[in-house]
Design a protein around this nucleic acid. Sequence first.
DNA 1: TGTACATCAGTGAACGCGCGTTCACTGATGTAC
DNA 2: TGTACATCAGTGAACGCGCGTTCACTGATGTAC
Lengths: 187, 187
Amino acid sequence: MRYPDGHKKRTRARIVEAASRLFRRQGYDGTSVSALMGEAGLTHGGFYAHFRDKAELLEKALQAAFAESRANLLERGLEGLRGEAWLRRATRRYLTLEHVERPDEGCAIPALGAEVARAGPGVQRAFAAEVEALVEGMSARLEGSAKARRAEALRRLTGWVGALLLARAVGDEALAREILAAAGRKP
Amino acid sequence: MRYPDGHKKRTRARIVEAASRLFRRQGYDGTSVSALMGEAGLTHGGFYAHFRDKAELLEKALQAAFAESRANLLERGLEGLRGEAWLRRATRRYLTLEHVERPDEGCAIPALGAEVARAGPGVQRAFAAEVEALVEGMSARLEGSAKARRAEALRRLTGWVGALLLARAVGDEALAREILAAAGRKP
DNA sequence: TGTACATCAGTGAACGCGCGTTCACTGATGTAC
DNA sequence: TGTACATCAGTGAACGCGCGTTCACTGATGTAC
């Protein structure tokens, strides 16, 4: 081989990371293959040596984004927490103005959910599997029966996601703050 | 004039209605001027006799969609209801599988929120004004202090929106049902 | 009542542009001898 | 150690296509006389 072992693999990872950020910031349709290859320090032609098509990259980019979200919500200082203690800290971490303003480093659901809803079955399956993994992780931190924990995980996640989506769309910092605060309140 | 009074106004309304449905179903970027004029029974060239550009139409289409949502959530049999009675009925109306499967007749927030977040200030201002009107209407149906009512309206709305977005994106009817049920639960 | 004209909503060809994808090629490197 | 060669990740021109927008034109109608 002319390149050291793992060279292509690392390039591929760079493309996935660039796509993961750009798709969340500009949308999937709003990000050209050219732009994302440029962000990874490459030209557009080489793309198809790494991926079948742009949709396949979306699957990989979603997986990368969800891995970040799971780390943010379940790890990074939140490892030992359970029940209300975990929920309070995770909620506070999700519902921030920084998260509203930096979609490229944030949760993929508010950023790309609507486009995934219009995507092909491969993308939707990949997305659903990532959601399942996140919900599983959240359930494991909650208390009560398995059924109640899963329902609460889903309910909390959808509340977070809707708040972020709305806070971003109104384009008004004061209203965004109010939305985050309302969504973070006790029931 | 060669056309009866109000002819152009009615054509314009037809374009707005077609756009309102198509944007929600296929996204703003995913709907061409040609496609939406065709849906309104016209050809693409006439578009600019009615609107400055495609973004201006998005504003009008959002206003039309929000008017439908306010009617669905605040009227159409829900006029006299207050507090828990209204909330239960409105929640049941929003969190349905039919709403998941028919975005073109549904709420604009899960369908277009992410694209509005990336749109210009005109679109965002129009969107924010419609959200304010909806939240105002919801607050008026709730009980407690003005502050508490507004916070609860925002919290409920974001919960609904997130549930619909997630239920659509997973592309799996069973999981979608579970998400809707979890989001509709009592806290 | 009948005819010529002015109006203007709507048509459709054309514009420059950027998209996703393909493909013949390049050139830096590891290997063989 | 030095040289010729094979490899293949990455390049960039080219493809057909559909986009948003412009603009000269059309033709059905209301109005003037």
